[in-house]
């Protein structure tokens, strides 16, 4: 129900600005977005938690340096967790089993370079692709019974992204994007092996302000 309310809220807010844009070039303009962000682990991180993470948010700021090229910053935050009442966790030299909760919190902070597939401000539908590079802080926790093991690290991170903005008027639009995030191995893994990298997908929906 909360998700439905959030989506409805985004559409209602964006519909307040229904009208058409009225200039030709984008160079020098900027985009600011607030997004609801969901996440799904892939690869090794999926072995730890395969459930979808519905909680999260993102902020994006970009400036057009050409009519179809923008640079900017992106902040994302995602929360994924699961409960396993008969969980088994493999450690470096052993195994722990019992009721457990697993958590992953991601906070990527990226610089981004985006390419937009049309150049005119009059276009309502603006698809784009974007390269993100930066750092990501990952909080990993394993709670077994009343005991907790934390493994928190900064990681170098990359995030290719594709999405679109649909302008509803007066510089406001709906944005949707999908992003693959890869946080390179850093620190010691909680489980077996030497690899402490994380990868996950983002699906973000939000409001953009374009000026």
């Amino acid at each position: 129900m909360n998700k439905i309310k959030l989506i409805l809220g985004i559409f209602i807010l964006s519909s307040l600005f229904l009208s058409s844009a009225n200039s030709q070039t984008r160079q020098g303009d900027y985009i600011a977005s607030i997004e609801w962000s969901t996440a799904l682990n892939v690869g090794r991180a999926s072995d730890y938690i395969s459930e979808f993470g519905w909680s999260g948010g993102a902020l994006t700021f970009k400036k057009f340096v050409q009519n179809n090229v923008a640079v900017g910053l992106n902040f994302n935050y995602n929360i994924i967790s699961k409960e396993d009442l008969d969980g088994v966790t493999e450690l470096q030299n052993g195994t722990v089993s019992g009721p457990q909760a697993r958590y992953l919190n991601y906070a990527p902070i990226y610089a981004n370079l985006g390419y937009y597939f049309n150049k005119s401000k009059r276009e309502k539908f603006i698809p784009y692709i974007q390269a993100n590079v930066g750092t990501s802080y990952v909080w990993q926790r394993l709670q077994i019974g009343a005991n907790e093991v934390d493994n928190d690290n900064w990681h170098f991170a990359l995030g290719p992204e594709a999405g679109f903005i649909y302008k509803t008027g007066n510089g406001v639009g709906i944005t949707f994007n999908a992003k693959y995030n890869y946080a390179f191995s850093s620190g010691e893994p909680l489980g077996t092996g030497d690899d402490n990298s994380y990868s996950f997908l983002n699906f973000n929906l939000g409001l953009s302000y374009i000026r």
């Binding site: 929360i79 909760a101 019974g145």
Partner: peptide, 17 residues
């Protein structure tokens, strides 16, 4: 960090390591 409380404390505490 943000951790949802699943209530794993004393009632379901059996752990085998």
């Amino acid at each position: 960090s943000c951790y949802y409380d699943y209530g794993l404390d004393t009632d379901n505490y059996d752990v085998v390591a």
